[in-house]
Amino acid sequence: MYIPALVLFVIFIFFPFVEGIKISYTNWDGYNQDYSWVQWDNYRRMFSDPQILNVIQNTFIYGIGSTVLQNLMGLLYALLLNQSFRSKGITRTIIYLPVIISPLIMGYIWYFIFQYYGGALNDIILLFRDEPVNLLASPEINVWLITLVNTYQYLGIAMIIYLAGLQVIPKDYYEAAQIDGASKFSQFLHVTWPLLAPSVTINIVLNLIGGLKLFDVITSLTGGGPGYASASLSTLMYQLYFARQDAGYAAALGNLMFVIISVISITSLYLLRRKEVAH
């Protein structure tokens, strides 16, 4: 029964992965049949490229920043929506709704809000000052705007996972804590939080992987610019392959991104799983 899935895995994941490793040792332009082996040149070039450090830093901001914000806001929404009140079903739907929108479309929606000329946010700013603010062209701001947009789109997933975790916690635990005189905060700290450990693990690992490979929102909001100021490893790979026809170097960056995501996600999963066992 597992053979069809295994065949699909080999064709669409394992084979391209092996090909990517091979291409990273060549000077292939991505289109022509001819190429030559350059050994470790692409990797030497990568570690001496002055732009790479900034791009890796942006990648970590997207990954870690989105993870922190999505988990914090998702947990707060889950705690609120786990209470009994009217229209909580509609509220859950509204919060989850951005998840079903294409990330590329979501980026363009926010682009029309942040853009310099005619942007909704700048229309409000012009009520208080004479000049609009070029938010998307500012290297100090645009990386964080992208992180916030990614957080806004996917915090609904974190909320749903936390809600599922909250709803399987036995109410007997809270009743026992109340009898012992525990405050609401103490109940959260000593009952809710430890028992939410599996949900925390799932959310953190998924958010880290999604944030570290962020592509669509960056492309639609800034295109990685100005220059490479807001580029991630994903967008830089795209630009190298399609704009500069430098597939060998793009493959080397892809391998670097694979190593970064694998190390961070596996380490996080291991540490968080140990925390679950401890609880």
Rank of each mutant, 00 (worst) to 15 (best):
G181E: 09
I141D: 02
G227C: 06
G20Y: 03
N122D: 11
A252S: 14
I209A: 12
D34T: 13
D216Q: 05
I179V: 12
L126A: 08
G223R: 01
I160S: 03
A229D: 09
V55S: 00
L269S: 13
A158L: 06
S84V: 11
S84F: 10
G63C: 08
W144Y: 15
R129S: 10
F60Y: 07
P103Q: 08
I124Q: 12
L135V: 14
D180Y: 10
L253S: 00
R92A: 01
L135M: 15
V168P: 02
A243F: 13
L253V: 06
F185R: 12
K88T: 12
A164R: 10
Y249E: 07
Q245V: 09
I124N: 08
T235R: 01
E19Q: 14
Q57G: 11
K171G: 15
S183H: 09
I125S: 07
N54T: 11
E276C: 13
G63S: 05
D41R: 11
S262C: 12
A177S: 15
A251P: 01
L195F: 11
V149Y: 00
Y96D: 05
I23R: 01
A137M: 15
S183R: 08
I266E: 05
G156W: 02
F188L: 14
Y270G: 07
V205K: 12
L221D: 00
L75C: 08
I113F: 15
Y116L: 13
I109N: 06
N142Q: 09
V18E: 04
G224S: 05
I23W: 02
Q178I: 07
L79W: 09
T222Y: 00
P132D: 05
V149K: 01
F258M: 14
D246A: 05
G63V: 05
M106R: 02
L69N: 01
Y31Q: 09
A5K: 05
I21D: 04
Q167H: 12
A137H: 10
I169F: 09
Y111W: 13
Y117Q: 13
N207M: 08
Q187S: 15
S24Y: 11
V68S: 01
T151K: 03
I95T: 03
M73G: 08
I209S: 11
